[in-house]
């Protein structure tokens, strides 16, 4: 399976998914013109990948700001990973946030509330 890489812009995050290593990175800010169009390749890639993922998969998220339609997309991404976790795959999330930004912590905690997979929230 091919890796997925989408370079960051000022309003959309870096997407860097390495299938063999099981390392998935999303970093930056997310308020693209159309969030659902932006995240469509991410959903498609994950849907394929999660059929036969690496032995351990880690999603590293470093998103300092998401608009509400990007939040919805991120909920959908986390639900896909949570589904794989519930089927016995080793999947976890590490959410990185800037310790000056309380809002980023609140947001991370809300995302963590809705999933059962291991979810670490790390201040930087």
């Amino acid at each position: 399976m091919d890796s997925l890489r989408i370079e960051a812009t000022s309003c959309s995050p870096l997407i860097d998914f390495d299938p063999a290593a099981g390392l998935l990175r999303i970093e930056g800010e997310s308020y693209p013109e159309n969030s659902f169009d932006f995240y469509a390749p991410v959903f498609n890639w994950l849907e394929d990948y999660l059929k036969t993922p690496a032995p351990a998969v880690v999603l590293d998220i470093g998103l300092s700001y998401l608009n509400t339609s990007s939040i919805k997309c991120m909920i959908d991404v986390l639900e896909m990973l949570d589904g794989a976790h519930q089927q016995g795959q080793t999947v976890s999330v590490r959410w990185h946030y800037d310790s000056d930004n309380d809002r980023a912590l609140d947001m991370a905690e809300e995302f963590a509330e809705d999933v059962s997979l291991p979810f670490e929230i790390l201040a930087h």
Partner: peptide, 22 residues
Amino acid sequence: YKEQSRKPREAGASGAGLGLID
């Protein structure tokens, strides 16, 4: 907010219906 965020996206909608609640 939680209820709306769990709803499936409407086909063709450009937003998630979360803006006003947020």
